[in-house]
């Protein structure tokens, strides 16, 4: 579904990604981790074709997105659902208009029909549609905004891949759990490729099948939870050190549940 081949990218003179390569299969769930400023979010921007690498290729469904015209890029983007950091909801639109945005823009469905589907989607992401559908995004909590953003991404042409940029950052534990459960549910029920960018490793353990750790713009680790647990890579150990206590607890609890 998504192939990243020998990609190097820099903002001006500052190198961000250095010759990284990995693939994500059509129903695979991958968590990309790394310290702040390591280039995690840039990978998502590259996959969407919002930026193009100085060298290397980003292929989505076999097409190099940077070789496409803007119109063709837009078609590719329709296959990918993206949940931005902080949700990036359209603040001048109500919740239902946000959720039904794709349908309002790209289909000729009536407002009633779009509203109906938006209500269904809000229910799917675990929100009380009646209570919030006419509110503005700023009137919602951070966790609710994140779930509305996920609903907005899903109510498009059934995305083949979902990209999440720091989906739980700044949320309280209960909201974090709700959002993570939703991501897990989507990956399993809808059989879509999932890439979650986060620096909250403990949150990621529950649902990811594969972990990629990026340090200083390079892939320091790419493997399963078992391999991560046994990794002797110094950079990886150093990155995991602050999380080690909680990481071990989650590993004890979840590793046996998920394997």
């Amino acid at each position: 579904m998504i192939e990243i081949k020998n990609v190097s990218f820099s903002y001006g003179d500052t190198p961000v990604l250095k010759n990284i390569s990995f693939n994500v299969g059509s129903s695979e769930s991958v968590v990309v981790m790394g310290p702040s400023g390591s280039g995690k979010s840039t990978i998502l921007r590259l996959i969407l074709g919002l930026e193009c690498p100085q060298s290397g290729e980003i292929c989505v469904d076999g097409l190099n997105i940077c070789n496409l015209k803007e119109k063709e890029k837009q078609e590719i983007r329709k296959k990918i659902g993206m949940v931005f950091q902080d949700g990036a909801l359209f603040d001048s639109m109500s919740v239902w208009e946000n959720v039904g945005f794709y349908l309002l823009e790209h289909t000729k469905l009536s407002l009633e029909e779009v509203g109906k589907r938006a209500v269904e989607m809000l229910g799917f992401v675990g929100l009380d549609a009646k209570e919030i559908m006419n509110k503005l995004p700023e009137q919602l909590s951070g966790g609710m905004q994140r779930r509305v953003a996920i609903g907005r991404s899903l109510l498009s042409t059934a995305p083949k891949a979902m990209l999440y940029d720091e989906p739980t950052t700044g949320l309280d534990p209960q909201s974090t759990e709700n959002v993570l459960e939703l991501i897990d549910k989507l990956n399993k029920e809808r059989d879509i490729a999932t890439i979650v960018v986060t620096h909250e490793i403990v949150d990621a353990i529950g649902f990811a099948g594969r972990f990629i750790i990026i340090i200083d713009g390079q892939i320091a680790f790419d493997g399963s939870l078992e391999e991560l647990r046994d990794s002797k890579n110094l950079d990886v150990l150093q990155f995991l050190a602050p999380f080690r206590l909680s990481f071990n607890e989650v590993l004890k609890r979840d590793f046996f549940n998920y394997t």
Binding site: L50, E75, R77, M82, F84, Q85, D86, A88
Partner: peptide, 18 residues
């Protein structure tokens, strides 16, 4: 500018909107 700084422009692009 506010839409850009809150990623709303990128969100538009991700929905295939120019």
């Amino acid at each position: 500018g506010a839409m850009k700084s809150s990623n709303q422009l990128n969100a538009l692009l991700s929905f295939g909107i120019d």
